[in-house]
């Protein structure tokens, strides 16, 4: 079993309820074009953004960053973070050049022993996107595995 360093179990549990500062994000055409190209397909019509925009836009739009999320989880370095899973809901089409408002926080954090007997931490955060009329446009829950 590996040593767990960085956060005590109590500190880990205390992450639940942490709220991000909140903020806004506008997906520009160049960003959507490059993102879509990285997936290996042509741009979508009618200014639609590629659905995988729901990884980075909520994180940046809610006022945090991948770096800050790693720091909150007390991890750094190659192999320290793994993706466990995503749950992404789309309540309306996401399009370029619309300013989305975002709010969210950490909704789960717990320490478990994985199938290899190694102690790992799991952290989940949820972020909701609202359109310019303040209607919910999307909601994401991302689950990460933090290895010490």
């Amino acid at each position: 079993m590996g040593d767990v360093i960085g956060l005590s179990e109590a500190q880990l549990h205390a992450l639940v309820g942490h709220r991000f500062s909140g903020g806004r994000y506008r997906i520009e055409h160049w960003e959507n074009w490059l993102l879509t190209d990285c997936t290996g397909r042509e741009p979508l019509p009618d200014r639609l953004v590629h659905p995988i925009v729901l990884f980075h836009v909520p994180i940046l739009g809610v006022g945090t960053s991948i770096t800050e999320l790693f720091a909150l989880g007390g991890v750094a370095g190659a192999g320290s973070v793994g993706l466990e899973g995503y749950d992404w809901e789309y309540f309306g089409p996401l399009v370029e050049d619309v300013e989305y408002r975002m709010e969210g926080g950490i909704v789960a954090a717990n320490r478990v022993t994985d199938e290899t007997g190694r102690v790992v931490d799991k952290m989940a955060f949820e972020i909701t996107l609202f359109d310019e009329t303040d209607r919910m446009a999307a909601r994401i829950t991302n689950r990460w595995v933090l290895r010490r």
Binding site: R41, L44, P45, P51, W88
Partner: peptide
Amino acid sequence: VNMLLAWAGPSCVRRLTVSF
């Protein structure tokens, strides 16, 4: 997602729940 878009259209996705 690209598979889904090619199959059901560019605004078809309503929910994705995946494990890596």
